[in-house]
């Protein structure tokens, strides 16, 4: 970050600060200090997270009449709290949707609405569901998820764990987290099943505990400064499996919903701060 001072007209003094996505990798050996430095930077950036641009676009998409059925999501889509109601919906998902007879995480539910209510083709959405490093814009679904997530800012996670199907999804997710396969015998829990471990410099949350699970779901969807891309928890799960050396999980599949139910359900009761910002 650099600051340049400029004297404006009418005697006003203006200080201009530019934030660049490219910043030097910490070469310090003091992990705690490096973390503290980044926490400071993050606090500064949270006040002006570029994710807000995706929220704005998502809000426009939510309200617009679109798709072959020329319907708006605001008028047709029930995220679980009633048609068109977005406030608090993100922190109350994943949840069971009787109309689809499925437990769904938020991204999956919005995709479901786009297909069922607006008439979009699932294959068109699923073809490229994540923003790539060379893509100037995030996919529409990412903007929509970011908008909906922003409408749960500073609310507590409240996944309806008493609902039997949600409870079952949580239990299945817990089992998937411990499933070892692939050439390296990795499961989610190989890295995320014990306390206080690190891969290289990266601290690993233990997803089995509320304080670890919250670190797995907090900050998603998140704006990644490296490359300037907006990514959702669907992407995060996808990339975990990549690093696990697994094949690629299908977009908005049960497996991902189960894992997100396991993590979010375990994080229940803790504060969600809204779309996040990442390195």
């Amino acid at each position: 970050m650099r600051t340049l001072h400029a004297i404006g007209a009418c005697g006003a003094v203006a200080a201009l600060s530019l934030t660049s996505g490219a910043f030097a990798q910490a070469d310090s050996i003091d992990h705690a200090k490096a973390d503290a430095e980044f926490a400071k930077f993050r606090a500064e950036m949270e006040a002006s997270n570029p994710a807000e641009l995706n929220e704005m676009k998502g809000e426009g998409l939510w309200n617009a009449k679109r798709g072959p059925k020329n319907a708006s999501l605001a008028e047709t889509c029930d995220l679980g709290l009633g048609i068109g109601k977005v406030e608090g919906a993100y922190v109350a998902s994943p949840r069971y949707y009787p109309d689809a007879d499925k437990v769904m995480d938020m991204e999956r539910r919005i995709v479901w609405c786009m297909v069922e209510k607006q008439g979009f083709k699932f294959e068109d959405i699923a073809r490229k569901p994540f923003q790539g490093p060379n893509d100037a814009n995030a996919p529409e679904i990412t903007d929509l998820v970011t908008f909906v997530a922003g409408q749960s800012r500073n609310m507590k996670f409240a996944v309806p764990m008493k609902e039997p199907k949600v409870k079952e999804a949580w239990a299945i997710g817990k089992e998937i987290a411990s499933f070892r396969a692939g050439p390296f015998d990795f499961s989610c829990n190989t890295c995320h099943g014990t306390d206080g471990k690190r891969i290289r410099m990266q601290n690993l949350p233990n997803l089995a505990r509320p304080e670890g699970a919250i670190r797995g779901v907090l900050g998603w969807p998140g704006y990644r400064m490296t490359g300037g891309v907006m990514l959702t928890s669907q992407w995060r799960m996808n990339d975990c499996f990549r690093q696990q050396r697994f094949p690629e999980p299908k977009y908005v599949s049960d497996t991902i919903t189960y894992l997100l139910t396991y993590m979010t359900g375990t994080a229940n009761g803790q504060l969600y701060k809204g779309p996040g910002i990442k390195r």
């Binding site: 404006g8 006003a12 003094v13 200080a15 530019l18 934030t19 660049s20 996505g21 570029p50 400064m225």
Partner: peptide
């Protein structure tokens, strides 16, 4: 500010995607 330019600047390609700018203006 109310139609009067208080900051005028040039930026180049070294600024990140989706940039964030912060200014402090007196008056």
């Amino acid at each position: 500010l109310n139609g009067k330019t208080v900051v005028s600047g040039q930026t180049a390609a070294a600024v990140s995607r989706n940039p964030v700018f912060g200014f402090k203006v007196r008056g």
